[in-house]
Design a protein around this nucleic acid. Structure first.
Lengths: 167, 167
DNA sequence: GGTGAAATTGAGATATG
DNA sequence: CATATCTCAATTTCACC
């Protein structure tokens, strides 16, 4: 897997990622201006980021509230003795489920769920309840959702250090 | 707020949203083919979706693993007597935090956190630990992350019913 | 909401420094 | 990797049905 990542991301790559995470429709011209590189160079870097799987695609962001699904909740599932039930019945039966994660710990599954109202959510919980014990947390408000990925602290220290050596 | 949403989304709108959530860079030509409408009509609908805030933007999707942050965890914070501490110190100090939600219940905050390794995560938890009691859930694997938003079950029933009346 | 045409814009390639 | 230029293609946008 690491053979695929020819090299770690440098600061220009991260700048490109930051820009494209904010606006996926930037032209190579505009991008090149913002990262202070030529258009062909940026295009080449973006191509590499796509091919190496760092950039997995480009998606429109939809506001769940404006789209009629203002209710957000986290649901922890405690699956009966090892049989995680969302493995049997696919998530396709539950369009309300936005995310599914397997956890360490007693409650083995974490779901992020969106629905149109408390009434809908109640129905969802009832349907899902057949799968095992659960614990629900209803979200009151959201400060950040899907914040753009940034270089980790360690990476920034490294590139900063490189920056000091260069000039 | 509802005055802004001139009307609810119909099935063509949802089809457009589905396509653009899968590929934000579709041209109006290609989009018009997929939703069986003319290009100017699609462009007009997209413009309305953008103006009404249903579409909030277009973003590149970045694979956190390939970008060097394979570790994902949920952290529940129990803030000391009503003072939610992420209100005082901004989330900018914690670039690892991908999401912040206020919850009902004892643990008043749910964080989604990405970091480079367990070592980094340990450091993050120590830094955050000053803010209050917490409960961490480390993610072992992820089946779905940020699944595209779909019309709610109720909406689909309604539009299906409309579909029956039309022919 | 559909059609068609004109004008703008951007992508891709190539050659060179 | 930067610059320059060229060509080709594609999309946007407008006016009109």
């Amino acid at each position: 897997m690491n053979a695929f990542r020819s090299a770690a991301l440098d600061d220009v790559d991260w700048k490109i990622l930051a820009e494209l995470q904010r606006d996926a429709r930037l032209s190579y011209n505009e991008l090149s201006r913002r990262v202070h590189l030529s258009a062909p160079s940026v295009a080449e870097r973006v191509r590499r980021l796509e091919e190496s799987g760092v950039i997995t695609g480009y998606a429109a962001r939809v506001d769940p509230e404006r789209a009629g699904q203002p209710l957000l909740a986290f649901v922890q599932l405690r699956c009966a003795r090892g049989q995680c039930l969302l493995r049997t019945s696919g998530a396709e039966d539950y369009p309300e489920i936005a995310e599914i994660h397997k956890l360490s710990g007693e409650y083995c599954t974490m779901l992020k769920v969106r629905s149109a109202s408390l009434t809908h959510f109640e129905g969802f919980v009832e349907r899902l309840g057949e799968h095992g014990e659960m614990r629900t947390h209803i979200v009151l408000s959201t400060q950040y959702d899907d914040r753009p990925l940034e270089p980790s602290v360690l990476e920034r220290e490294v590139t900063d250090a490189e920056g000091w050596q260069r000039p």
